[in-house]
Structure formats: structure tokens, C-alpha cells
Amino acid sequence: MTPSVSSVGTEQGEYAHLIPLQRQYAELGPDDPERSSLREQLINGYLPVAEHIARRFAGRGEPLDDLMQVATVGLINAVDRFEPDRGSDFFSFAVPTITGEVRRYFRDHGWSTRVPRRLKDLHVAIRSALAELSQQLGRAPRPSEIAERLGLPVSEVIEGLQAGEAYRSSSLDEMLGSGDGKATLGEFIGGLDSELALIDNREALRPLLAQLPPRERTIIALRFFRQLTQTQIAEQVGISQMHVSRVLRQTLAYLHEQMAGSD
């Protein structure tokens, strides 16, 4: 039991200059032209915080670069959502937000590497059937009821249930997705470019994303920059959750392939 104690921003001066910017940023209207440059300054300014958190999780089987990206996404969320006039300081808000993002990544990624594809799809399908049936029946469904809904043998549903998290109505990623349902699809996409500007290998990624068909681009944006769940994306885009899952998988594989090729 070696406690790993570390600190962020103990040098008071290090982030002090960002405080007035934070306030200014929060006070600007959504359409203010100054907004995006302020946002960039804030994100860049606080980047060491994200980096610090990413490093804490390094050496656990995930590349540091990936962790940095994930932590940066968490930081962006924190910068965008922080309300300085609520009286708390930025760190109180940003550290759990960023840490949550990285932890979620570990969980999702761990799940996806440990569990075979078929079971993962099954798990996703069961989770959505579970939610629907619970609402319709006014109680939790039986495995046979889930099986009937999905057109699968009961034995497969039981296997899917046992595969893990299917018992949870809502995992962490769903929780975060429920954060702001107010933004429109256009805003999601509009935010994409500025968010991408912070990703290390943006030069390679940006043209690739631009080339994607609009639906694929939208789905990637909703999943990775808005952290919507596959179910929520399915609702927004108007296709099934299984389909979203397939599109995500294929698109990511394509992007990875292209990125590898461009190195």
C-alpha cells in the first residue's frame, strides 16, 4: 500500500493568470467572436493539469498519448461547463471531470478488449431492451422477455447478462451523456474543429474527418466529443444502436488505418 500522492498546481502563480480569463469566458455570449480564442487560451493554460492526470494513469496498458487525448477532452468539458459564479474554484470542478473521463476510457476500453465482439454487441442490445421493457412492464424484465424482444435464444441472453455490466441500467458513459441535451447537432459539429485543434496529431486527423461521409462524421463527433452513448446517438441520428456500434467500429478502424498510413 504505497499511497501515490501528487499535486496539481501547488505553485500558486502557475494558473493565477487564468482566473480572470475564466470569468471573462463565462460572461461572454455564446456568439461572441472572442470566445474561441479565450477558450483556447484557457484550455492550453490548463493543459498541464490534464497532462498530470493522464500521467497518473500511465503504465497501465494504455499509451500515454491516448490518455492525454482523453484527459484533454475532459479538460475541454470542464472549461466549457465551469460556472465561476457558483463560488467554487476551477480545480474542484475540473479534476473530477478530467479524472472521470480517463477512468471511463479505461473501463470502456478494458471492456472492449476483454470481451469478445459478439458479447459486447449482445450486451449493448440487452441494455437497451432492458430499459424499454422495464418501462413497459413496470418491473424488471425476465431473461425470456428480453430474448423475445431481441429475437434471441434465452440462453444467449443469460450469457450476455453474465458477461458483465448488463445489469447496470446506466453506466458512467450514459451519465455523462445526459449532461447537456440542449445543444443541437449543428453545434456539436461546429465544436468539432476547435476541439480537434487540441489533439496532438490533428494535422493528420482533421482532413480524414473532413473526408468522412456526413453521417459517420456526426456519429464520431457525438461519441467522442460529446460523449453521448450509442443509444443516445441512435436516437439523434435515427438509426439502431447496433448500427451505431457498427459505424463507430468501422469508422475508427478506418481512421486508425489512415493515421498509421500517414506517419
Binding site: 432492458l130 418491473r139 424488471a140 424484465p141 425476465r142 431473461p143 425470456s144 434465452v154 443469460i158 447478462l161 453474465q162 445489469y167
Partner: peptide
Amino acid sequence: ARADFDLDS
């Protein structure tokens, strides 16, 4: 689960 109990049960 094999006795087809509902998930809460």
C-alpha cells in the same frame, strides 16, 4: 436467471 426470474429478483 435460468429459472427466468426478473432481473430485480
